[in-house]
């Protein structure tokens, strides 16, 4: 164990420089200015991830945000275990009808001010699952969405770009 720990101290850091915030995400967010909320939250956001029926691909890449290469916590972004602690809901999947109520209840349990980020092609409009008897469609058909991050699944860099845009927006810089 000592060798592994020592090496991680002496070798250079794996963490990569931050990507620039996504321009299209900034544009989408620019339409939703809430100065009062911005003043309250500062430069830190607590994120609650909700899988609303995804294939699990998006979750794998959201997980990767916490590895040494992306190290999401350095930006003041952290994942929390309860919607009651969250500022942001990160929602994936085509919102299966079996998950719709759970998503609504999670949204209602999240205190204001809050943002919803829909992640992945399915979360935008149901993606390849659109039209199924078992899916509602996009996340915005169930709860209001502030930002969409595209991709199937979006790469950790794409996710980071979108979340950094949200952070800029929330801290009043966007």
């Amino acid at each position: 164990m000592r060798k592994t720990l020592l090496e991680s101290l002496t070798h250079g850091s794996l963490t990569e420089p931050a990507p620039a915030p996504d321009d299209s995400a900034l544009a989408e967010l620019a339409t939703k200015v809430d100065r009062a909320a911005q003043a309250r939250l500062g430069r830190s956001l607590a994120i609650r991830e909700v899988d609303a029926g995804s294939c699990n691909g998006c979750e794998l890449e959201i997980h990767a945000l916490s590895n040494a290469f992306y190290d999401i916590e350095r930006f003041g972004l952290r994942f929390v275990a309860s919607p009651r602690h969250a500022d942001v809901l990160l929602v994936t999947g085509p919102v299966t009808k079996n998950m719709r109520q759970a998503l609504e209840r999670t949204y209602n349990a999240t205190p204001d001010p809050k943002w919803v980020v829909a992640v992945g092609g399915c979360a935008i409009d149901g993606g390849i699952f659109r039209g199924s008897y078992a899916c509602v469609g996009g996340v915005s058909d169930t709860v209001p969405v502030d930002l969409h991050i595209k991709g199937c699944p979006p790469s950790p860099t794409d996710l980071l770009k979108g979340l950094l845009a949200l952070l800029e927006h929330v801290s009043g810089k966007g």
């Binding site: 899988d51 029926g53 995804s54 079996n98 759970a102 699952f129 199924s132 899916c135």
Partner: peptide, 10 residues
């Protein structure tokens, strides 16, 4: 069953 998407019907 929460993530049932109806893949067989699609």
């Amino acid at each position: 069953g929460y993530t049932h998407k109806g893949i067989e019907s699609l």
